[in-house]
Simulated scan of single mutants.
Amino acid sequence: MVGGLAPERRRTQRLLLRGFTDADREPFAALNSDPAVMEHFPSPVDRARSDALVDRVRAGWADRGWGLWAVERADTGEMVGFTGLSPATFDAPFTPAVEVGWRLARAHWGQGFATEAALASLRVAFEDLGVGEVVSFTAVTNSRSRAVMERLGMHRDPADDFPYPSIPEGHPLRPHVLYRLDAATWRLRQG
């Protein structure tokens, strides 16, 4: 799907994007167990599942050479969440695809960190890895993430919206929106 290697670390104006360390497990588990952070997911994530996610993220980097980064504030050194790229391989009309995603601790919302980190992830996707298109998706009700997708320059066609396959029918979070950004559009905007 994607060739090449992503930089192991990426610096933005205010953030350091880097590999997860064992020291990140506790703050990552705290944000994953926060009901507000996990409002648009079926349930908060307990410590064991959070640690398993860290392990999968690390394995993804080892296997593919790209993936999700821990997001660290450059001014405080605090790990505040994650951003990056992941393969979307579940059964949907647009998969397989490369997804850009993010999740930040509530105390760091509203400061533009998600957009800043995701833009760096898109730069890696299009400029370093040669990805042709990146997608992002979320529950229809997740207005905060949808606003980030729009700030990133991603576009939504309502015909692409889909029911998330692992969420049961009738669940209010099952309806998802899909946003897309292709490499040609990215280049035009950079140019």
Rank of each mutant, 00 (worst) to 15 (best):
Pro7Gln: 10
Arg11Glu: 15
Thr12Lys: 07
Gln13Ala: 15
Arg14Phe: 09
Arg14Thr: 08
Leu16Phe: 03
Phe20Arg: 01
Phe20Asp: 02
Thr21Met: 06
Asp24Tyr: 06
Glu26Pro: 01
Pro27Arg: 01
Ala29Glu: 11
Ala29His: 11
Ala29Gln: 07
Leu31Asn: 03
Asn32Gln: 15
Asp34Arg: 03
Ser43Tyr: 07
Ala48Cys: 05
Arg49Val: 11
Arg49Ser: 15
Ser50Ile: 13
Ala52Asn: 10
Val54Glu: 06
Arg58Glu: 14
Trp61Phe: 10
Arg64Ser: 08
Arg64Gly: 07
Gly65Leu: 14
Trp66Ile: 04
Trp69Arg: 11
Trp69Phe: 14
Ala70Asn: 07
Val71Leu: 03
Glu72Phe: 05
Asp75Thr: 12
Met79Glu: 05
Val80Leu: 12
Gly81Trp: 05
Phe82Met: 14
Ser86Asp: 04
Thr89Gly: 12
Thr95Pro: 05
Ala97His: 03
Val98Ser: 06
Val100Ala: 05
Trp102Ser: 10
Leu104Ala: 08
His108Glu: 12
His108Leu: 04
Trp109Phe: 12
Gln111Lys: 14
Gly112Asp: 00
Phe113Lys: 00
Ala118Leu: 00
Ser121Asn: 02
Arg123Thr: 13
Leu129Glu: 02
Val131Gly: 01
Ser136Val: 00
Thr138Leu: 04
Val140Cys: 12
Ser143Tyr: 11
Arg146Leu: 11
Val148Cys: 11
Glu150Cys: 01
Arg151Glu: 06
His155Ala: 15
Arg156Gly: 01
Asp160Arg: 09
Phe162Asn: 05
Pro165Gln: 06
Gly170Glu: 06
Gly170Tyr: 07
Gly170Trp: 07
Arg174Thr: 03
Arg174Trp: 00
Leu178Tyr: 03
Tyr179Pro: 00
